[in-house]
C-alpha cells in the first residue's frame, strides 16, 4: 500500500506570550509537531506493520525549518519526506492549502492508496484541510478516526468517535482519513531509525515543481482573509474572594436563594 501522511508544524499554543501591542510574540515561540498528527503517524505505522510492502511518504507544507520535524519522522521508520515550501504558499487559508497539497500529491505521488491527516491543528483548529484535499482529489473521506480495525490492499475498517457513539465504517481505497486523539502509545525513534534517517533527504518542492499556478495558492488563492485580529476580550467581572468555607458554600446554590 502507498500512504501519504500529511503533517503540520505548529507553534506551541500553550506557551504564547504577548507583545505590548497585543500581537503574538512569534520570536522564541517553540515549534512542535501538531498533536493530532502524532496519532495519525501511529495509524500509518500500524498499517505499515500489518500490510506488507507499505511505503509511507510524510508530507508537510511550511517554512524550511519544518524539515527538521520531517527528519524526526523519518527516524520513526517512514520511507520518504516531502516539504512543500515556497514564499508563494504563505498565508494560504484551508482552501488554498487543500489545493496546494492535493496538487502536489496528484503530481508527485499519483499512485497513492491512502492519505492520512490529523483531524485538526492546534493553531488554526479548523479541521478543514483534510476534507479540502479529499474534495480536490475526489476521494471518499472518513473523519474522526480513533482506531484502525482492519486493513488490506483494497479497504480499511475504522472506528470513528462521534458525539453520541462509536461508528465502525469500512471504506474502499483510495481514500483520505482524518485521525483524532486516540490511545496509541507514541512510537519512539530507535538508534537504527535515527541512523537510517540521516541517510535520507527531505525533498523540498516549490510552487513551480508541483506545476501549480501561483494565483491558486497563498494569499491570492485564498477565498478568505483576516480583516482584523485582536486579543480575546475578557468578561468584565470582579471576583469576590472568600476565606470562610461556610460563606463560600452559599454561592453554590443555583436556585439563587429563591427557595429560601
Amino acid at each position: 500500500m502507498k500512504i501519504v501522511l500529511c503533517v503540520k508544524q505548529v507553534p506551541d499554543t500553550s506557551d504564547i506570550k504577548w507583545t505590548e501591542n497585543n500581537t503574538i510574540q512569534r520570536e522564541g515561540l517553540e515549534s512542535i509537531i501538531n498533536p493530532c498528527d502524532v496519532y495519525a503517524a501511529e495509524i500509518a505505522l500500524t498499517i505499515k506493520k500489518e500490510c506488507p510492502n507499505t511505503t509511507v511518504t510524510v508530507l508537510s507544507m511550511g517554512p524550511n525549518q519544518a524539515g527538521k520535524m520531517l527528519k524526526k519522522l523519518l527516524a520513526l521508520g517512514f520511507d520518504e519526506a516531502v516539504l512543500l515550501s515556497d514564499k508563494k504558499f504563505a498565508a494560504s487559508d484551508t482552501y488554498a492549502t487543500g489545493k496546494t497539497i492535493s496538487k502536489a500529491i496528484a503530481e508527485k505521488i499519483p499512485d497513492f492508496d491512502l492519505i492520512i491527516c490529523g483531524q485538526y491543528a492546534i493553531d488554526g483548529d479548523t479541521a478543514q484541510t483534510g476534507p479540502s484535499i479529499a474534495n480536490f482529489l475526489n476521494l471518499p473521506q472518513i473523519t474522526y478516526v480513533k482506531e484502525l480495525v482492519e486493513c488490506d490492499e483494497n479497504k480499511l475498517t475504522l472506528l470513528r468517535e462521534l458525539e453520541e457513539g462509536f461508528e465502525k465504517v469500512q471504506t474502499k481505497l483510495p481514500a483520505l482519513i482524518c485521525v483524532t486523539e486516540n490511545s496509541y502509545e507514541p512510537t519512539r525513534a530507535t538508534i537504527g531509525g535515527v541512523i537510517e534517517a540521516t541517510k535520507k533527504e527531505v525533498k523540498i518542492l516549490n510552487c513551480n515543481d508541483i506545476g501549480l499556478e501561483p494565483a491558486c495558492t497563498g494569499l491570492k488563492g485564498s477565498p478568505t482573509y483576516v480583516s482584523k485580529a485582536f486579543r480575546a476580550v475578557k468578561k468584565e467581572v470582579q471576583c469576590e474572594f472568600f476565606e470562610n468555607i461556610e460563606d463560600f458554600a452559599k454561592n453554590f446554590d443555583i436556585l439563587g436563594g429563591e427557595n429560601e
Binding site: D93, T94, Y95, G98, D125, T126, A127, Q128, T129, G130, P131, S132, A134, N135, F136, Q141, T143, Y144, L162, E163, S222, P223, T224
Partner: peptide, 23 residues
Amino acid sequence: ATNQGRDLAPRISSALHTGLTAD
C-alpha cells in the same frame, strides 16, 4: 459545527471554491 457539519462543510466550500470560517 457538529461532527457531521465539520465533515460536510469543507467539502461544500471547497467544491464551490469559496471560503469557510470554522467554529
